[in-house]
Amino acid sequence: MKLIVEHRGRADEVVVDRQGEVWLVRVGETDYEVDAVTVAGTARSLRVAGSQYEVDLAHLGDGRYEVSRGGWVEELRVQDPLAYLAGRAHGAVAEDSSQTVTAYMPGRVAAVLVEEGARVAAGDGVLVLEAMKMENEIQAERDGVVGRILVGLGEAVEGGDPLFELD
């Protein structure tokens, strides 16, 4: 099966074939023979190139995976080549348009730092979310203009809730 894997800041063509008990996997130009088993739950043991690696795999939906190896966590996306190309075309159109910034954690809105229509630079604080007795500034990830602010002071938000628009 041919796939496109986005990882390490690039997209690689990955070819996966089952060969009896092992997997033959080509990543870009490199061939690997992989023995992969489920240890328990989301834990996997991979034997590859003479070494054993224990990783944890979480499927985040839509071909997105989080692969964790103790401390190191990597997010990857696996797609069939057609979906990948379609996604790229879609992404090119979507660029520069408005973006809704969502909460990456649950919390309570402790402060709103700018007004709607304010011009912000990448790294400027827009909101402050409070959780676990700590205040965390939600910053603009790029330069832009703050559109509608979708939450009010004191409001409780869940992870994934829309917070504000950045045009």
């Binding site: 099966m1 997997w23 996997v25 070494s51 401390g71």
Partner: peptide, 24 residues
């Protein structure tokens, strides 16, 4: 900063690709 373990850079891709095929 957390550093990618040096031993096998493609490990994440291998794990995710095999998982994806099995899942599909």
């Amino acid at each position: 900063r957390a550093e990618r373990p040096a031993e096998l850079a493609d490990l994440g891709a291998l794990a995710a690709a095999v998982e994806h095929v099995e899942r599909t």
